[in-house]
């Protein structure tokens, strides 16, 4: 799969940061909006996929080394470990329950603010471990989906090479 025209390349390069930032926003506001780790991660990964399509797999594979792929896999593992690890922390801190939200309503910590009852303005500094889990899931999804797209692109390159 070769790259597309210069116009597409340029436009996608310009749009890409915005897509990424939007995706990160969705991840970060996962506990307040219908978004979350998966949705935001999917947005970011689709931005990456757009770049891949625009520049073509040949160019991308030339740029990417084996090292980068293994970093991608490590990030994926780290995301998953972060998620399940937070669940394990629930067994260690506070009341010892798996998936215990041990950070919620603890004013001293990040994301520890208490939500007032009734209609309030959105406060990102709430919800305890939920945002952290969203970050972990986001990381996992970005790495995972990008990995999938990348490998599929790699396979198409193989076919053309034959």
């Amino acid at each position: 799969m070769s790259g597309m025209s210069k116009i597409v390349k340029t436009i996608s390069s310009i749009i890409f940061p915005f897509i990424t930032i939007y995706g990160l926003y969705v991840i970060a506001h996962g506990h307040l909006t219908p978004g979350g780790g998966f949705q935001g991660g999917a947005v970011v990964a689709s931005g990456l996929a757009m770049l891949l399509v625009a520049y073509g797999s040949v160019w991308t594979m030339g740029k990417l080394k084996e090292k980068h792929l293994s970093i991608n896999q490590t990030l994926e593992s780290v995301g998953a470990i972060g998620f399940i690890g937070l669940a394990f922390f629930g067994l260690i801190f506070g009341t010892k329950i798996f998936f215990n939200n041990f950070l919620v309503n603890k004013q001293d910590y990040l994301f520890g603010a208490t939500v007032k009852l009734g209609e309030t303005a959105a406060n990102i500094n709430t919800a305890g471990i939920l945002p952290l889990m969203n970050f972990a899931v986001g990381l996992k999804v970005i790495a995972g989906l990008f990995g999938i797209v990348l490998l599929m692109a790699y396979a198409t390159r193989l076919k053309e090479g034959k």
Binding site: P34, V115, E119, A121, N123
Partner: peptide, 10 residues
Amino acid sequence: IAPIYTSSPG
């Protein structure tokens, strides 16, 4: 409305 508690219009 969508089930979001913060800033919900009621």
